[in-house]
Each structure stands twice: as structure tokens, then as C-alpha cells.
Simulated assay, not measured.
Amino acid sequence: MSYFMYDVMGVTVDEPDPAMMERVLDGLADADDEHPDVSLSHESGWCLSVFNSGLLIWENPDDDALSPGEMRDVTRAETLRLLGLLAAGDIESIKTLPWLR
């Protein structure tokens, strides 16, 4: 399965391992109004965006039938877990979480 991340400046990181995912998250310390998040996108179309505040946005931009979901105050450990699930293609496990729409 193919996946990639965008760092806070929009640079693409192809198929990052967990250590690289952590480094990309570290870049959120430099987030600003123009570059507020990092994200991981899976070939299925699903995307998880991460903000420094602990906000996560879960969406599939290719599917207009489902509005984006969000979770607030998500810990770094949980964020890394969810990024790992998405990278592995475990979409169903992420979908079952309590996303606010």
C-alpha cells in the first residue's frame, strides 16, 4: 500500500517509517497561520491532518458523501498510533472512532 506525508511546509515524505512520522510531527512546533498542519494520505483517498493543538481531521477528499470528522486534544501517542493505522491501510479501525461531524 502506498502512502505519503506532507510536513508543515508542504514537503512530501514518501512512505515514512514511525521515526520519520515523529520527525514530521516535531515540525508542528514551526506551524503558523499559513502552514498550520501536517498530514498523512493513503492511496485509498483517506487523509489524516494533524494540528499542533491536538486537533485531528479525518477525511476522504475524493468522497463528497461523507463530511470530514474531527477529534480534539488528541495525544501525540494516539496521533502516532492513528498515523500508523492509516499507513497500514487499516481504514476501518480509524472509521470506528468517535469522530465529530
Rank of each mutant, 00 (worst) to 15 (best):
D73Y: 03
V50D: 03
E92Y: 05
L85K: 12
D90Y: 09
L82E: 01
F51P: 00
A77P: 11
F51W: 04
L25W: 10
H42F: 10
D62R: 13
S53L: 12
E15S: 04
D73F: 04
E22P: 11
D30V: 05
W46S: 02
V8R: 06
E22C: 13
M9P: 01
T75S: 15
D30Y: 07
A77R: 11
G89I: 06
P18H: 13
R81Y: 02
E59P: 06
D17I: 03
D30A: 11
D33R: 15
D32Y: 06
V8C: 01
L28M: 15
G10Y: 14
P36F: 03
A65I: 09
D64N: 04
L56G: 13
S53H: 13
E43T: 10
E70S: 04
T75W: 11
A19F: 01
S53D: 12
E34I: 05
A31M: 02
L83G: 03
V13L: 05
P61S: 11
L40P: 05
A87F: 10
A77F: 09
V13Y: 02
N60G: 10
D62P: 09
E22K: 13
W99S: 06
D63G: 06
E78V: 14
L25G: 09
V50E: 00
S67L: 10
E78M: 14
F4V: 05
H42K: 07
L40D: 02
P36I: 05
P61T: 13
P98H: 07
A65V: 08
R101S: 07
E34W: 09
V24G: 09
L83N: 03
Y3Q: 06
G10Q: 15
D33W: 11
E43Q: 12
R23F: 15
D26T: 15
D14L: 13
P61E: 14
L86W: 03
P16C: 07
S41P: 09
R81H: 15
T75V: 07
L28G: 14
P68A: 14
C47H: 15
E15L: 00
V74P: 14
S41T: 13
V38E: 02
G69K: 00
L48Y: 01
T96P: 02
D14W: 12
D33A: 11
A19D: 07
A87K: 08
T96Q: 10
M71S: 12
